[in-house]
Write a protein that binds this DNA or RNA. Structure first.
Lengths: 337, 337
DNA sequence: TCCTACGTTGTAATCGATTTCAGAAAACGG
DNA sequence: CCGTTTTCTGAAATCGATTACAACGTAGGA
């Protein structure tokens, strides 16, 4: 592999001059430029980027921490981030934590060991006080998650409000007994639960604790939980889920049990993923502005890297949408309207 | 940021000794080891990995080229590769080509500029003769794609056979007019088409060129193409698709037009993605061994990197499965059996 | 006691680039 | 034609690690 020294020798010039040509320094005569170019071509020279990184003290690489790639929500989020990164000549190091605290910490080390110029966290497993210290080692942004007392910039949707609206929609369809499957311990999930609870309380509806479910993520979880719900004494007539995957699983399980959606049991999803339109009945869901989330998070991070200014706290809230389809609106009713 | 020199100074030792402790060299006394460890702790020292990369001439990073992350097939493939990579302390640089020839070439440069130790190609856009030369710059593996005359190792499924079996299944259900939507110009697609054609020919069935469709990838494409198919004079009664996404789109469009699947039009998918079980009727499909593909490709690449031996050509063929569900088997028929 | 062998440590070269600084050459003004 | 400024180029330091080699000290054998 040819190095800059080889090019210099062949061109009969110094390494410094070659480097100048490489970086378009103004003060090099056309003559020497040509010599250098010819030598580079002849030797098939390509600068070694590791050496450049060491010398320039930057990597042009951003780490993105996601739980899993196979969750479409994160795939689309990454897609949006990638668009912006590419435009800015940045590489993405995609890090799957698989919901492991240890892996998360390992990946955060990337910032400390200067393997990346910045980092985006799209969810986290550890306590925030374990994570925050890493933000001292390099720019960091929180996307789709949040933390109240921190200087790390946050880009997210108002989960509380969105959940409130979603739950209220179910109530407006006449449901009084509504289950909720969005609760794990993340702040995001807590917000969703809080939104759900407030909507219920505002309409004077009681929430039974046996209607609340945690750790419900995918299609199989959805099937399992729906069967549990239908077996409850005085079973709920609607479910506010935290994910389209879960809602889709519920619809499948309901049909398998001979129950009609939404007449026997109504279901609302979250995200508006492609699957929402594929299931039958199609899913009423809360659209998240995924592209906006990813795009904005990346832009904020790039700003942070460029200006190296002390992170002044900022929180960007993006808008949601309630998308009403068939899994909450009885066809009979909608015709009668 | 503390460097190895700072540690050395604080420990009252040389950089060499610190480095030896870092790399568990045997010949360092416990005494000095302790001194070094204390200094490292005190200074919060972490080795700069860029410097290590430069010195050691390796990056411990693998590039994976995929068209898009949002296609679940590739998400699952990456998931499998990530498992093996993580186990081997390797980082993955995930590169989305978005079906762009230029981007593909840009990413291949990673190998030439020594930014990665190896590269896996999961599909490609350029001519193979554009791509092959890059394999001279570093280890490269082809996964889920193939090329006849090359020394680059190949890990794939027999698309020809799988498509033959899939098409034959449709024929066995009594279909004689079968459309095919798997044709673009990749070798993979050509194989699928060839398998389809052979199955048809073996049963003495004719293939009309207007039944063949190219560039059909996602749900929307599926909807669009199905409408076209149903508008043909003497419309086909079955479709052999190249993807579960497409097949799912077709089922939705068929239902919207009041057609029954599989009685009016039967559909077979490809991949056995989660969506295959979600749609109604559920999809008959050809299961690809995604985990095996990803895992094996990564293992072969790691071997290649470790032994630096000249790539002896190898081609690994993994098995497929025909998964029969409702989109090809009329309920009436299956009951009557 | 002297010589060899081995274990331990440090010095300095190295990986492949960029950049400061200083000197040479060219341009310019009077 | 000389002094000053500007433009161009190269030598050498630098980024932060690893490692070949040399040097030193100590233990063991004769």
């Amino acid at each position: 592999m040819a190095t800059i020294a080889d090019v210099a020798k062949r061109a009969g010039l110094s390494r410094a001059t070659v480097s100048r040509v490489l970086n378009n320094h103004p003060n090099v005569t056309e003559d020497k430029k040509r010599l250098v170019r010819e030598a580079m071509e002849w030797l098939n020279y390509v600068p070694n980027s590791t050496a450049q990184r060491l010398r320039n003290q930057k990597t042009d690489t951003i780490a993105i921490l996601v739980p899993v790639l196979t969750n479409p929500f994160f795939a689309y989020l990454l897609e949006a981030m990638d668009m912006v990164a590419t435009k800015n000549q940045l590489q993405l190091l995609i890090c799957q934590t698989r919901y492991s605290k240890q892996k998360e910490l390992d990946f955060l080390e990337l910032l400390r060991t200067k393997q990346v110029d910045g980092l985006i966290l799209t969810s986290y497993e550890n306590e925030w006080k374990q994570i925050e210290p890493f933000s001292a080692f390099g720019p960091m942004v929180l996307c789709n998650e949040y933390e109240r007392h921190t200087k790390v910039p946050i880009i997210r949707m108002n989960q509380f409000e969105a959940s409130y609206i979603g739950t209220r929609h179910l109530i407006e369809q006449g449901h009084k007994r509504i289950a909720c499957t969005c609760g794990d311990k993340s702040n995001l999930a807590k917000d969703r639960q809080a939104g759900y609870r407030k909507a219920m309380a505002d309409q004077g509806l009681l929430v039974e604790e046996e209607w609340m479910f945690s750790n419900v993520f995918d299609i199989e979880d959805g099937k399992r939980v729906l069967r549990t719900i239908l077996n409850l004494r005085e079973a709920p007539t609607a479910v506010f889920t935290g994910s389209d995957q879960v809602a889709a699983g519920m619809i499948m399980a309901a049909k398998a049990l001979g129950k009609k959606v939404p007449d026997d049991i109504a279901v609302i999803g979250f995200d508006d993923q492609p699957i929402a339109k594929v299931v039958e009945p199609s899913l009423t869901t809360i659209r998240q502005p995924i592209e906006e989330l990813g795009k904005t998070a990346m832009e904020v991070l790039i700003d942070l890297i460029a200006y190296k200014k002390d992170t002044k706290h900022q929180e960007i809230l993006l808008p949601y949408d309630l998308v009403i389809r068939d899994s909450t609106m009885s066809k009979l009713k909608s015709i009668s309207i």
